[in-house]
């Protein structure tokens, strides 16, 4: 039963979605939109599992005393701060005890992590007391401070200036720099892999070299190279892409059919 019902659900909803594509009527469209909302809502509920997993793995690293395990504190405090910023916003001009509250909560998170990570009961008790005390203090601050408030159902938190600062000056620089490392990796990958070992590797190498020289004024016949690289992008590249797209399309349809018909069951656990 535990396995049959899920496969039944896959079959029923899969078949419905296949035929929905051919039925433009408003009623079928309504069901379609409703089902897409299901997917979104299920995905967001599952995020709690993800955050829990992140917490568990971080604590585990500290517990095992792995090298660099202490960095996990940064992860969880960062996670907590961003969430706190996103749900709060100042109500007047000043911030009141907001930063004290943030600090108290962060300390509470850290002591909770220590609580889970410690093994002997004496330490466990100490950290339990500490986190309990900090939590009470944080709740008290939250109750008695009027300078800021929680906004759960309205997006005021997105305009919290700390939320914006964390986004602009922590997230964006690191993510953009991570992306820009590609400039170096594309160079090292080219150096490492572009060797004329055989015909295929040579073709790959020559095509890449030609396109990379498309604006190089130092090589003879520069204009010809520019035209040739334009041609490479529009003719062989197009042919290659089209062939792959068709194969992928059939591959997706084939795999999805097997999933719906219950032939392919590898994605579902047993027991």
């Amino acid at each position: 039963m535990r396995r049959q019902i899920p496969f039944g659900l896959v079959f029923i909803f899969g078949i419905f979605m296949v035929f929905q594509f051919f039925v433009p009527h408003e009623k079928s469209e309504w069901v379609y939109e409703f089902l897409l909302d299901w997917i979104i809502v299920i995905g967001i509920f599952a995020l709690a599992l993800g955050i829990w997993s992140l917490f568990k793995v971080s604590v585990e690293k500290i517990k095992q005393g792995k090298e660099g395990g202490n960095y996990s504190y940064i992860t969880l405090v960062g996670l907590y701060m961003m969430m706190a910023f996103g749900f709060t916003q100042q109500t007047g001009d000043g911030w009141g005890l907001y930063f004290l509250w943030i600090m108290l909560c962060s300390a509470c998170i850290v002591s909770l992590m220590r609580l889970r990570a410690s093994t002997d009961s004496g330490k466990k008790r100490m950290w339990a007391l500490a986190s309990g005390g900090l939590l009470v203090a944080a709740v008290l601050v939250a109750i008695f401070d009027d300078a800021w408030a929680f906004f759960l159902y309205t997006p005021e938190g997105l305009e919290n200036s700390m939320f914006e600062i964390f986004f602009d000056h922590i997230m964006m620089p690191i993510l953009a720099t991570m992306f820009s490392l590609l400039a170096f990796y594309i160079a090292s990958a080219a150096y490492r892999a572009f060797r004329a070992r055989n015909v295929l590797a040579s073709l790959l190498l020559l095509a890449a070299l030609l396109v990379m020289s498309r604006f190089n004024p130092f090589i003879p016949g520069a204009e010809y190279v520019a035209n040739a690289s334009n041609w490479l992008m529009n003719v062989p590249n197009l042919a290659a892409q089209r062939a792959i797209v068709i194969g992928i399309g059939l591959g997706i349809v084939g795999t999805a059919l097997k999933i719906i018909l219950g032939i392919e069951r590898g994605y579902m656990g047993r027991g």
């Binding site: 995905g43 967001i44 995020l47 992860t75 996670l79 961003m82």
Partner: peptide, 17 residues
């Protein structure tokens, strides 16, 4: 570690709101 935490929190907020 910083960006993992901050970005995870950011997406929690975005998906919530």
């Amino acid at each position: 570690h910083l960006v993992v935490g901050v970005s995870a929190g950011y997406f929690v907020i975005i998906l919530w709101h």
